[in-house]
Amino acid sequence: MWVSGVAEIHGRWIARGLRSMPVPAAAMTLGHVVLGCTIADLERTRRHERVHVRQYERWGPFFLPAYLGASLVLKLMGRDAYRGNPFEIEAYAVDDPSKRSF
């Protein structure tokens, strides 16, 4: 299904993959494609995942290495590699305006 120029895909195999990741996820963005466990998960996480779509647009092919690099540095520092990741902080800020850094 296409929503505002972004392909949203869900299904049993996608759900199995997302739930078996090191940090289980309800949805995940890969460029202009958002994978979700269910339609409800795609709807619930839409604003958050659209922040990641914009991050992909800004960073291009460097997004994934930058995201993973930030997580690695945080993990090596003994911090939360997911919640402490600046890309996630920006995405979660759409749900909590008090955490916006811009």
Rank of each mutant, 00 (worst) to 15 (best):
T38G: 05
G17K: 04
E43D: 14
P61R: 09
A93H: 11
W59T: 01
R46P: 00
M21C: 04
Y92F: 13
G84L: 02
S71M: 10
Y67R: 02
S71T: 11
E90L: 02
L74Y: 14
G17C: 06
L64W: 14
V53S: 05
L42Q: 08
G36T: 13
S71K: 06
G84T: 05
D80I: 09
L64H: 14
R58N: 05
V33Q: 03
A81M: 06
H48S: 03
H52A: 00
R58H: 12
E43G: 03
A93Y: 13
R100W: 09
L18M: 05
L68F: 15
M1K: 07
T38V: 05
H10Q: 08
V34T: 15
F63K: 01
Q55R: 04
S98A: 12
A26F: 11
G11L: 00
E8F: 12
L76S: 05
P65S: 09
V6H: 07
T38N: 08
W13G: 01
L72K: 07
A7I: 03
V51Q: 06
R100I: 05
K99S: 14
G60E: 10
P97A: 09
Y67F: 15
P61A: 11
R83Y: 15
V34R: 13
S101P: 00
P65G: 10
I39S: 12
G84D: 07
A93W: 11
S4Q: 11
V34Y: 14
W59A: 10
R50W: 15
H32D: 13
V51A: 06
L42T: 10
Q55Y: 11
A70F: 10
G84N: 04
E43H: 11
A66H: 11
E8L: 05
G36M: 00
G17M: 05
V94M: 03
T29H: 06
G11S: 07
D80H: 13
I39P: 01
V6N: 06
A7W: 07
R79W: 14
A26M: 07
V6L: 01
D41G: 06
P22T: 15
A91W: 10
D80N: 15
M1C: 03
L18T: 10
M1Y: 12
S98E: 10
E8S: 06
A26T: 15
I14S: 05
M21K: 09
N85A: 05
G69E: 08
H48N: 04
L68Q: 13
A93E: 10
K75N: 10
H10E: 09
E90V: 02
G78Q: 07
E8P: 00
S4Y: 09
A26I: 03
E8A: 11
I14V: 15
V51F: 08
V51C: 03
T29L: 01
L76N: 07
A81L: 02
L74K: 10
P24I: 09
K75W: 15
V73S: 02
A26E: 13
P97L: 03
R47V: 04
E43T: 11
R19V: 02
S101N: 07
F87L: 00
H10K: 01
V33E: 03
R79I: 01
G60C: 02
A91H: 09
R12C: 01
R58S: 07
V94N: 06
D80R: 08
S101A: 09
F102W: 14
G60F: 08
G11Y: 08
V51K: 02
M1G: 10
G60H: 12
I89S: 01
V53G: 05
E57R: 09
